[in-house]
Amino acid sequence: MKKKKWWTMGRRESLQGYIFIAPWIIGFLAFTLGPLAFSLYASFTDYNITSRMDFVGLQNYDQLFTGDDLFWTSLYNTLYFVIFSVPLTTMGAIFISMLMNQSLPGMRIFRTIFYLPAVLSGVGVYLLWMQLLDPGTGLVNTVLSWFGINGPNWLFDPDWTKPSLIFMKLWSVGGSMLLYLASMQGISRNLYEAAEIDGAGAWKKFLHITLPLITPVIFFDIITSTIGSFQIFQEAYVMSQNGSGGPASSMLFYNLYMWIKAFQSFDMGYAMAMSWILFVVVLIITLINLKLAPKWVHYEGDDK
C-alpha cells in the first residue's frame, strides 16, 4: 500500500507562492494592519491627532451623508474624473501601443518619446501643464488658435477644470502603454498569419486576435487605474487656486477634501470616516470588476 505523500507538488508550489509574497505580508502585518484598525476605530471618534479622542458613535458618518454638501461635491468630482479618465486612458494606451507595435525603422525612438511622460512625474509636470493650459499665453490655446478655435479657460473655468486634468492624464499613458506593448509582443505571429490567409484585414485582426489576447492586461490596467483615479489628490492640490479645490469647488476631489478636513480643520476622525467610505466604494467597484472579469477576460491556457 502506498502512503499518500504529504509534501505534494501542489503544496510545494503554494509555499513558494507565499514566500514570494512574504515581503508584502510581513510589511502589511508589521506596518499597515495596526494603523488600518486604528483608523477604523478613530472614525467613530472626534480624534484630533493631539488632544482629543472621544467616542461619538456614527456621528461622523451621519454628518457626512446628511449634512455635508462639500462631501457630495467631492464625491461627484471624483466619480466624474474616474468615469472619464479610466476608459479614455485605457483606450489611449491601447491605441498608442498598437502604433508602437509596428516594425518601422526608428521605432525605439518613438517608444521612448511616448514613454517619457511616465518617467517625469509629480509637481514639476503639473506646473508645466499649468503653463501649457494658460488661457492667454499657453501653448495649447495657441495651437488651437491656429485652427481658429478660441480655446477655453481650462483651469479657471469650473466647467473645464476636470477635462483639463483628464487631458493631462492622457498625455502620460506611456506607463500602461508599456504593459500593453509587452503583452502584444507576446502574441504569436502564427495567429496573424493564419488570419491573413483567411482574408482578415487589420481591423479584424485587432478585434479578434490582439484584443482578446491582451484582455488580462486591460483588466489589470482598469483595476489599478480606477483605484489610482479615486485617489487623485496632488493634481488638484497643486493646480487649484490656494490648493483648496477652486474655482467653484470644481477640483475639490475626495482625497483633497479629506486632507483639508484632517490637516486644516484637524478633524481627523471625520477624515478617517471619509477614507473608510472611499475604501468601501473602491472595494465594491473592484468586486464588481472581478465578478465581471470571467465574461470578457481571456486567459490563454485556461480550461474555461
Binding site: 508584502w24 499597515t32 488600518l36 489589470f220 485617489q231 484632517a262 477614507s275 475604501f279 473592484t286 472581478l290
Partner: peptide, 22 residues
Amino acid sequence: LKRFSLLALALLLFLTGCAGFT
C-alpha cells in the same frame, strides 16, 4: 489565488494612498 492577489493589490494601493498622509 489570482483574485486574492488582485484584491490584496487593491488594498495595498489604497493603503499607500493613506500612508502619504501620516
